[in-house]
């Protein structure tokens, strides 16, 4: 049963991703790619769990690498996306701020 629940989750999540990107203007493609790059930084959670119950030394070393890489994905993805999106303003906003 669990396998099928997982299959439903896979399917619905896939549709969600497709729908979210479907109607995006080209100007947001790069930030969105970067943003989705950040979202799969969730791998950090999996890496932490894996390191959390790693036993042998080899497993711990690989787990440590996994967490470093995952944290890099999440933090780097966030900073880069946030820097890009910070710059998007319409001419109306600009008139108000200057």
């Amino acid at each position: 049963m669990d396998t099928f629940i997982a299959l439903y989750i896979f399917m619905l999540a896939g549709f969600t991703g497709y729908e979210i990107i479907g109607r995006v203007p080209v100007i947001l493609h790069t930030p969105l790619m970067s943003g989705s790059n950040f979202v799969h930084g969730i791998v950090l959670v999996g890496a932490m769990i894996a390191l959390g119950h790693a036993h042998s030394l080899a497993e711990q070393i690989i787990g440590f690498i996994a967490v470093v890489l995952g944290a890099g994905n999440a933090a780097g993805g966030y900073v880069v996306t946030e820097r890009m999106l910070e710059m998007f303003r319409s001419s109306k906003d600009r008139g108000a701020s200057s």
Binding site: Y18, I21, S36, V39, I42, V45, G46
Partner: peptide, 22 residues
């Protein structure tokens, strides 16, 4: 930890589909 696994499935799958379309 299974709940964390589900979070990985959903976030990963959303990105997988969105990334393929992109």
């Amino acid at each position: 930890a299974a709940a964390g696994g589900i979070a990985l499935i959903i976030a990963g799958m959303v990105v997988g589909a969105a990334g393929t379309l992109l």
